[in-house]
Design a protein around this nucleic acid. Structure first.
Length: 807
DNA sequence: AGCCCCGGTGAAGTC
DNA sequence: CACCGGGGCT
């Protein structure tokens, strides 16, 4: 049924070639607004039309939203059921699914938790406390960045400690213990049965490295691989793609080097620039016709990006009208900037009969939104902010989600800490400290400590012990229900039975009301979720999760009653954990009042387009950001960001700057951005400076060029910051050398346990060597008093403490 | 155990 | 200016 001529006719010649060259390595360089999504869509449709099973196609996108949109467009071309069978999603979501199938091979439970950034930071804080390190020096966010960077470059904790380059860097930055923090962090996550975002990719690599049969399975499965936004992939993602494509080499990457704006998070622009080296018989297609913007916008944007050194040669053009000049607007303060933008929008709406939703205001940092919001409110202009604090980050939502997480994975310490005393049940800080310490000493989760409380002798009184026990029983009970009842029913039960709903309901303040509404919204989300059907992938995953699951018959359920069509809470959690704000926002777009002005960061605007775009805060040290002005690479990224911003505009782009701005509560004088200077003056309309005949350009750039040249040394090459770069080998299958993950090697051995006697010399993971002084109790609940060289005497339960006999 | 107030410190972007 | 953490008070 290859009636494909129909849709292929809608493509221009290059787009068409890029769509039908389905076999072998292909790179598509897609300029802004050049119909990239259309090509990807038609290409996938075409592959399927040629008789390939959608199940054998892997398409990796940058956001889940992009995946959903593409799926629905493909569905319209070739039928929804086929489109649904595609493996399509972000790297994180696709590989977290695959990891659930295979997790046990790596020593993780199938229902592993995914730690978000807050969880990670909290783990780091705890590690620092344990190691007696100052969190002013080892700032958790910095530490996390460093660990993330290492993981994205496939450097395990062990390799990190053996890597003289990174260790020297750490010593030089007065953080010599960084590697050990990484190690302890990794160990804790592992014990909690948790992976952070970077682990999802890192562990996928480990899986493919250590289990060749698994690699072959997926190589076989994914006969066609497509990667969108390839310029924003990092090394870890690069290796995954390279490995998976090694068998068929039907690999198509799509991207635009000019729009690479995620280097800060490990994206490596070299992945796209060097793609040709990996695949010598690569076919390259350049989509150079812009269908989105006016000639003016296209020309100005091209001139901007031409200032960058590293890029593919391309000639972006458009057959659209010349359009209006780019407007530059000057304001005296950030508030005035907001007012001018708001006034301009009002005026444009009247003059051109425009709708709110045709306008976007883009800024470099979220903090800039406030002045703009105020101005819009004054003009009664409805707006919507994208990004900012996400729904799932809200305290009350996180609290309830923590119950869900802990019910699914009892070892999830971060969730446990969050909710063990919420709503208040009399388990306070002192008790928690005792539990945490015991857990850390024995290398087990806090939940496990609580389950075996009597055996630890922590000096917790009977009353508190009972409260802990009640909590444990409750969570276990929730856990048992996870596979048995649907996500909404269980989610709702948890909200009710824990008292959260009541607690929030009783708070009648406006904030309290809003919190209550948020919980209701979460529950509505659950309701929607249970009514949706699974995709074929999810179906397969569900079967795998049920397989081997031991369901105890209860008064209420017999195992055979477990309905495989039931959509359960663990599935819901998997779906939402990797959802981004952008994904969540989408749902609301169907609501009645969606005619709103969009406010967002430029990063968030990637992939979007609007007739009228305002880019605000074009000032030195803001855009380009202060952090970037010292290195050429960073500055080039800022310039690409500026390029992305301009190319969002279809009809008109307006650039604004303020000469003063509040920052940290005090007034700051600002210089106009160097990016304004780089604009091609023929296409730009500058403001007149009132009360003088001097044009904007003369006054401003005259000053800049003379007085400020030395004060703002531009584009000086500095030594790049941290970036351990493992060289991409020609044969990554053998060349990539990762150390083994911390595997299940800590599991206590029962024979070993019995052999420990009074007088034995033993080794503890944390305390090192020590001698056993006393053994008490009955197997398997033996308790030993051990005198360690470091840390003195400790009482340890042999069943938990992993002691190695050394003499 | 919880609440409140104070002071110090800090904003780039995100899966 | 806004947030967070610590300390002190109830």
């Amino acid at each position: 049924m290859s009636n494909d001529t129909h849709y292929l006719d809608e493509l221009n010649p290059v787009q068409r070639q890029a769509s039908i060259t389905t076999d072998g390595p292909v790179m598509i360089i897609a300029g802004a607004g050049s119909g990239k999504t259309r090509v990807l869509t038609y290409r996938i449709a075409h592959i399927i039309d040629k008789g390939n099973d959608p199940f054998n196609i892997l398409a990796l996108t940058f956001t889940n939203k992009a995946a959903r949109e593409m799926k629905s467009r493909i569905g319209k071309l070739i039928g929804e059921s086929k489109a649904k069978a595609l493996w399509m999603g972000t790297f994180h979501s696709v590989f977290s699914k695959i990891l659930r199938f295979e997790a046990e091979k790596l020593g993780y439970p199938k229902n592993f938790t995914i730690y978000d950034t807050d969880d990670s930071k909290s783990v780091i804080k705890e590690v620092l406390k344990n190691m007696n390190l100052d969190d002013k020096v080892y700032k958790p966010s910095l530490v996390l960045n460093r660990i993330s960077s290492a993981k994205n470059n496939l450097i395990s904790a062990k390799q990190y400690l053996n890597n003289s380059t990174v260790m020297t860097e750490d010593r030089n930055s007065q953080k010599p213990m960084m590697g050990l923090v990484y190690e302890a962090y990794a160990k804790r996550c592992f014990k909690a049965g948790a992976m952070d975002f970077d682990d999802l990719l890192f562990n996928t690599n480990i899986l493919m490295r250590d289990f060749p049969d698994v690699l072959v399975k997926y190589q076989d499965k994914f006969r066609y691989i497509l990667v969108d936004e390839y310029q924003d992939t990092n090394f870890s993602q690069y290796v995954i793609v390279k490995q998976l494509a090694a068998r068929f080499e039907n690999i198509c990457v799509v991207g635009d080097d000019a729009q690479s704006i995620y280097a800060f998070r490990g994206a490596n622009i070299q992945n796209i620039l060097n793609f040709r080296k990996d695949y010598p018989d690569l076919k390259t297609f350049k989509l150079e016709e812009n269908y989105r913007s006016t000639q003016t916008i296209v020309k100005v944007a091209s001139a901007v990006i031409s200032k960058n050194k590293d890029q593919f040669e391309k000639n972006i053009f458009t057959n659209n009208d010349i359009g209006e000049k780019i407007k530059v607007v000057r304001a005296n303060t950030d508030n005035e900037e907001g007012m001018k933008v708001a006034n301009s929008i009002v005026e444009t709406k009247m003059r051109e009969q425009a709708f709110n939703k045709q306008f976007a205001i883009l800024y470099r940092t979220n903090a800039q939104s406030r002045a703009l919001e105020e101005a819009l409110r004054k003009q009664n202009l409805p707006y919507r902010i994208y990004g900012g604090i996400s729904f799932y980050q809200r305290k009350e939502v996180k609290d309830l989600l923590s119950y869900y997480r802990l019910s699914i994975n009892h070892n999830d310490d971060e969730s446990l800490k969050r909710i063990i005393n919420y709503p208040v049940r009399g388990i306070g800080g002192t008790t928690m400290d005792k539990l945490s310490i015991a857990a850390a000493e024995h290398g087990i989760s806090i939940f496990t400590v609580c389950e075996n409380l009597r055996e630890f002798n922590l000096g917790i009184n009977a009353g508190t012990s009972n409260k802990i026990n009640d909590f444990i029983v409750m969570v276990k009970n929730f856990g048992l229900q996870v596979p048995l009842i649907d996500a909404f029913e269980l989610g709702n039960n948890i909200a009710v039975n824990t008292g959260i709903l009541k607690d929030l309901y009783s708070d009648k303040t406006p904030e309290g009301l809003s919190r209550y509404e948020n919980i209701q919204e979460l529950l509505n989300g659950l309701k929607d979720f249970v009514e949706q059907k699974r995709s074929p992938q999810e179906e397969e995953l569900k079967a795998s999760m049920l397989d081997g699951l031991d369901i105890e018959p209860t008064d209420l359920f017999a195992p055979e009653e477990v309905s495989p069509t039931l959509r359960t809470l663990d599935e819901f959690m998997q779906e939402i954990t990797l959802m981004t704000d952008v994904d969540k926002e989408e749902e609301k777009e169907n609501e009645k009042d969606f005619d709103k002005i969009s406010l967002m960061t430029i990063h968030a605007a990637k992939g979007l387009e609007f007739p009228y775009v305002y880019i605000v805060g074009l000032e030195e040290n803001l855009f380009p950001s202060q952090m970037s002005v010292n290195s050429r690479a960073d500055l080039e990224e800022e310039r690409r960001l500026f390029y992305v911003a301009i190319t969002r505009a279809e009809k008109r782009a307006t650039l604004t700057y303020a000469t003063t701005r509040y920052r940290f509560g005090n007034l700051l004088f600002c210089e106009p951005s160097r990016f304004l200077e780089e604009l091609d003056a023929d296409y730009v309309e500058y403001p007149e400076i009132p009360g003088s005949n001097t044009s904007f350009t003369d006054s401003m750039f005259g000053r800049m060029n003379n007085e400020y040249k030395d004060a703002h040394p531009k584009e000086i090459e500095f030594k790049s910051k941290f970036s351990p770069k493992p060289v991409a080998g020609k044969k990554p299958l053998v060349k990539i050398n990762l150390s083994k993950p911390t595997g299940p090697s800590f599991v206590a051995d029962s024979d070993m346990l019995k052999n420990i006697k009074e007088g034995s010399v033993v080794e503890h993971e944390k305390f090192g060597r020590g001698q056993v002084e006393i053994i008490e109790g009955e197997y398997p609940n033996l308790k030993a008093t051990v005198a360690f060289g470091v840390g003195g005497k400790k009482q340890l339960l042999l069943k938990f403490a992993k002691l190695k006999i050394v003499g």
